[in-house]
Design a binder for these strands. Structure first.
Lengths: 149, 149
DNA sequence: CATATATCAGACCTTTCTATCTGAAATATA
DNA sequence: TATATTTCAGATAGAAAGGTCTGATATATG
């Protein structure tokens, strides 16, 4: 395997996408979310707990409880979700795995990978939950996938 | 964790870098390579076996044996090494993990991730072992790291 | 031919990631 | 207050990746 984000991080991002399409004041429970997204429920529970600790989600126990966004949707970027689950190592670590690789001691990939990595960062740092919510509204495919309307 | 390549793939790329700096006809044994790069020797052995099967390296048993490049250095791109170890899933799989994500059914990241992923591919597909060998020659840092000259 | 040196093949161990299970704690509602 | 519903916390299980070990096989060299 390879690829940018861990599976748990993918789940977190998918879950946040789902939350972005919900009314922001009411709580959504994890049975509905995991059912709809096809994600193992207990694992998504653990994952959302991490997002609660990171103050990205709020939780409420008991009947009518569940999760909702902890902040205004335009205040949270997807980067914050990635940071809460996978951390930020990918921003600094060498793409070839050389521990001592750096700007003044670059590996053969360093000068090409740096700008690309920055653009990956920009991609998730600039896109907020509000942006995603808009895109979901504009895409019938995504709406049906997430069971909206 | 996250990041593009698996650890084994990083080892393979580092090992190929080392081979790029060696005379191409003679064999280099794995004790020297793993020592120099700080990689666990048996694991690098396994990894190089995969590169032999992929016809990127040739091996020779016995005294004076070891590994050497199986082709001319300008005929092998770093992509071939990545393909031999990690495969090419990263070229097609959705960055958010949606199985059904595609051009006509895009996830909210699809249109931004696609071009970036293509550039990652270009980066490793265009760079050959010969290119890397040149860069190593031109960098005193890399030469000392790899113990050249 | 004997020996030392190297890769090869397969089994095995360890660590990390993914996923599940259980019971406790909180809370809406009857 | 009793009950059902939900998250929470910690332990546990399973799967995959990373890493080790052993013996077999090939070969250069004395």
């Amino acid at each position: 395997m390879s690829l940018i984000f861990s599976r748990q991080c993918e789940y977190a991002l998918q879950g946040i996408l789902y939350m972005a399409a919900q009314p922001h004041e009411s709580y959504t429970n994890i049975i509905e979310i995991s059912d709809r997204l096809g994600i193992p429920m207990p694992f998504l529970g653990k994952t959302f707990q991490l997002l609660v600790q990171a103050k990205i989600l709020q939780s409420q126990k008991g009947p009518k409880g569940g999760f909702r966004l902890a902040k205004a949707p335009d205040e949270v970027a997807l980067f914050h979700v990635v940071d809460a689950i996978d951390g930020t190592d990918f921003l600094t670590s060498c793409v070839l795995g050389f521990p001592e690789c750096s700007g003044r001691n670059p590996c053969p990939m360093h000068n090409e990978w740096g700008p690309l990595r920055d653009r990956v960062y920009q991609m998730i740092a600039k896109k907020t939950i509000a942006d995603v919510a808009r895109e979901i509204k504009d895409s019938r495919q995504l709406r049906t996938k997430l069971g909206i309307r």
